[in-house]
Structures are given as C-alpha cells and as structure tokens.
C-alpha cells in the first residue's frame, strides 16, 4: 500500500512538451509511473518519450479513458487555468510543481479543487513518490537518483522544503529504513492538501507505521497537524523537526495576519503544540531517523 499514488494510477502530464515537462516525464515513466497522456495545446497528435500528446485534458480523457492524476509543468501565470482544466476533466489528484504564482490565483485554484472533491498537492510542491512504484512531479529528479534516495518501507514523509523531501528519506535509508510515500507539501502561502489532510491519509495506510515531518516556521500547517493528533485523527508515531528557529522576525508576517492566526507560526509555538499533542519533536534533522527507529522498533 501507499497513499495517493501507486503503479496503477493513471497520470496526465500538463505541459509535456516544455523543458521540465519532457525531462521529468521521462524520469516518471522510466521509474514506473503509469503516464498515459500529455497535454500541450496545438501539439495534439505528437508523441514525447513515447507518451501521446493531446490538445486538452478532456481530449486525452476521451481517448484514453478516466485519468486519476495530473501533474502541471506550467508557468505560474498560466497555472490557474491548467488546474481548473484538470478538475473539469474529472481528475481527482493534481500535483503542481510550480512556484511564483499570483496568490489570488492560488486561492482560486485551491478552493475550486476542494469544492470539487479534488486533492491538490501544492502549489509549489516538488512532487510525491511511492518508492519502487511510481513518482509524480520532480521529486527524485532522475531514475538513478530516485533509487539512491528512496527505498520502500514503513515511513511516511512530509516535508515543507523541496530539498529536504529527498534528504529525510535518504537519512532514513542510511539508518536502514524505507518509505511508504514521501512528498513535498508545497511552498505557496495557501495550499490544497494540508499537513493534517495528509496525516489522515497515512493513518488509513497499512504500510505506513510512522510519519517523519520536516517542518518550517510560518503558517499553521504544524499546528493543524498537532490538532489532528490531539483529536485522535492520527494515532501513529509522528516525529517532527522544525527549521528556522533563528530566522529574523518579520521576514514573512504582516501585522494583520497575526490576528487571525492567533499568534501561531513561530518555531517555539509549533514545537509546543506538537509535543503537547503527543508528537515527538527533535532538535536537528539527523535525529529524525534514530527516533523513528526507536519508536517502531525497526
């Protein structure tokens, strides 16, 4: 088992013919992902890396049938329409490895996805990988590198940093532990899947025995994760590191935002909320793997 993605998940690559689209679709396909179609308007009928190209997502669905997941290699200014298009074509899981998007567009696409029962990873997510089965986005980068970093096993990984979404699994591998599914949750100020949403998916997954989180200052993702643990929505061992304890104050926050977030967002506040809820907070990322080992007796 795994969450959100396995070797049977059918995937469409939006922006297949672009620089990252063609490079990463080759990686995804050769890693084992079931990539069934690509989309670039005006390029319908072409083929890239053995993947048929269509003009629209709906055109792809008409030809290949229902598509489970989409990945958007689309420039930020055009991303909103790409996500709407995938949602309207009936795709239920969308990964957006795109940054530099107008925040109004992010809010619109996130709310449109939620309203239609679609899980949107990101925007600004490097992607997601279920080791040995499938990858979506550019987490893993290339086949040899993905095999170096990720091996199958019992640990779910959620990272707020793109780079750390590969590094935490690598540290787990060095410690002799593997991964059920690992993901980068995204960089944008508003996200589709929250950390709590993902923990609830890991809760139901039999393969996942524990979850490792690379957290960061800012926002409320970790506080919401703590609430999920406190409410019993996630009951497996949860080990968290929070980066940025020394970052200068005010780098990200406006005064007004602190009102609705009720003072949440600091490293200390996140650590306290998680610890009180029953999660394990570690002081450095190198302590994540040993702590998980200790907790699941692996």
């Amino acid at each position: 088992m795994s969450i959100l993605l396995d070797e049977n998940t059918t995937v469409v690559v939006q922006g297949l013919t672009g620089r990252e689209g063609s490079l990463r679709s080759e990686f995804m396909k050769s890693y084992g992902t079931n990539v069934v179609a690509g989309v670039t308007p005006g390029r319908g009928g072409a083929e890239v890396n053995g993947i048929p190209v269509f003009d629209t997502v709906k055109a792809a669905v008409r030809k290949v049938g229902k598509i489970d997941a989409a990945v958007t290699f689309i420039p930020g200014p055009a991303l909103k329409d790409a996500v709407y298009e995938a949602v309207d074509a009936g795709v239920k899981f969308i990964v957006s490895p795109v940054e530099r998007i107008p925040v109004n567009d992010v809010i619109a696409m996130v709310n449109y996805a939620i309203k239609n029962g679609v899980k949107l990873l990101g925007p600004g997510s490097l992607g997601l990988i279920t080791p040995g089965k499938a990858a979506i986005g550019w987490l893993g980068g290339s086949v040899d590198w993905a095999r170096t970093l990720f091996q199958p096993g019992p640990v779910g990984v959620i990272s707020r940093s793109g780079g750390q979404s590969g590094t935490v699994p690598w540290a787990l591998k060095v410690a002799g532990l593997g991964i059920s599914t690992a993901m980068h949750i995204g960089t944008e100020p508003v996200l589709g899947l929250s950390m709590a949403d993902v923990l609830k998916l890991y809760e139901k997954d039999e393969q996942t025995k524990a979850v490792a989180v690379f957290g960061e200052i800012g926002g409320t993702l970790e506080e919401e994760a703590a609430e999920a643990v406190a409410k019993g929505e996630f009951t497996k061992p949860l080990v968290v590191f929070i980066a940025g304890a020394w970052a200068p104050e005010g780098m990200r926050f406006s005064h007004a935002s602190s009102i609705v977030e009720k003072g949440r967002g600091t490293a200390r506040g996140k650590m306290k909320a998680l610890t009180e809820a029953g999660a394990y907070v570690v002081d450095s990322p190198e302590q994540i793997a040993p702590k998980i080992k200790e907790l699941i007796g692996a």
């Binding site: 809010i107 996200l191 919401e224 007004a256």
Partner: peptide, 17 residues
C-alpha cells in the same frame, strides 16, 4: 477595514475585517 490572506486549512483565502 482591511483584508488579509489566511493560509489556515479552515480558511484558505482572503479574510475581510
């Protein structure tokens, strides 16, 4: 009167105050 953006999962959008 003011507007801010709240990223919390129960909001995910603009908040008018």
């Amino acid at each position: 009167a003011g507007i801010i953006i709240n990223s919390a999962q129960d909001v995910r959008g603009p908040v008018l105050m």
